[in-house]
Write a protein that binds this DNA or RNA. Structure first.
Length: 295
DNA sequence: TACCAGGAGAGCG
DNA sequence: CGCTCTCATGGT
């Protein structure tokens, strides 16, 4: 059976697709002249953000078929942003961060891809993480069904492929000291020793502790996985950018420890703390630090 | 060139 | 505990 390129336009509100795909939560999407190309669960897609909609292309069996549920779920196209933004603390900092990029979204990622991505992210710039990610896809990932002009042609490798490849090959994809971590994490996921699917069912503290038993997973990476897979909306990853921003904006630049910052964040940012964090991260990254209060 | 990157682990006092 | 050092590599 021959696959065909399908096309749909999905209406959305308050959805800045460009900012969302370029916000450091996903590393497998590439901006091409035809739109953003990437994949979810071996399903190739190409996305274009319009004013009140997202244009979606994918490979289907027949014309006129519905957009695959995995893609809609990944995008969170039906999620209303209003109540989330309203739940943020009404301080000057958050108002500025939201005003700077209304429409920034959190995506709902595949747990294994997300875990692997953030194990690879440690002490790496976003551009480098994308390079490692792309190298692993090319070397070890399944071939995607994609149109002839597609630039993204491979899925992120499954745990089995990573285990089979081994540390040496993963290192050749520029993963460095993270290679051993990734292979061991893949092995535990593959054997069922670690159950990624259970994280959403556990209380956040337990889910976090489980993740931190994996090699290469500390507090920050654990929170990224909890947040970016949609398992726990209050997870608040504290990286170097967020740490700088919180110290600058809420602690007069004082040397507050990471643990203290996490504790403060859990109290201050509410049930959608992870969303608040993403707005702060984006603002800090785009505007640079320190950011001065408006006159 | 020097510094730093969406950190984590191990060793130290 | 909390601090420091190391890990691998490349962007800016």
């Amino acid at each position: 059976m021959t696959m065909r390129l399908c096309h749909a336009i999905v209406p959305v509100q308050d959805y800045d697709l460009d900012a969302t795909l370029d916000s450091g939560q996903v590393f497998g999407f590439r901006a091409t002249p035809s739109g953003w190309e990437g994949s979810v669960s071996s399903c190739w897609m190409r996305l274009c953000g319009r004013d009140q909609s997202i244009e979606i292309e994918w490979m289907g069996n027949s014309t006129g078929e519905a957009v695959p549920a995995e893609i809609l779920d990944f995008l969170g196209a039906g999620v209303s942003l209003g109540p989330i933004l309203s739940s943020f603390p009404q301080d000057a900092v958050m108002r500025r961060a939201v005003a700077a990029c209304r429409g920034l979204r959190l995506l709902k990622q595949d747990p294994w891809t997300c875990l692997a991505s953030f194990i690879l992210s440690s002490t790496k710039q976003i551009t480098q993480i994308k390079q490692i990610y792309a190298a692993l896809c090319l070397r070890l990932g399944d071939r995607l069904r994609a149109p002839p002009d597609a630039e993204v042609r491979h899925a992120f490798p499954l745990p089995e492929a990573v285990v089979r490849a081994g540390e040496k090959v993963v290192r050749e994809c520029k993963a460095g000291f993270r290679a051993a971590y990734l292979v061991e994490a893949a092995r535990r996921v593959l054997t069922g020793e670690f159950r990624l699917g259970e994280l959403a069912n556990l209380p956040i503290a337990e889910a976090r502790a489980e993740l931190m038993n994996l090699p290469g997973v500390g507090p920050k990476v654990a929170d990224c996985v909890l947040l970016f897979t949609g398992a726990h909306a209050e997870a608040f990853p504290v990286d170097v950018w967020i740490a700088r921003a919180l110290r600058e904006l809420y602690f007069q630049g004082k040397l507050v420890s990471l643990d203290q910052l996490r504790e403060f964040a859990a109290r201050h940012f509410g049930p959608h703390g992870g969303y608040a964090q993403q707005y702060l991260f984006h603002y800090a990254r785009v505007h640079g630090m320190p950011w001065e209060a408006p006159a």
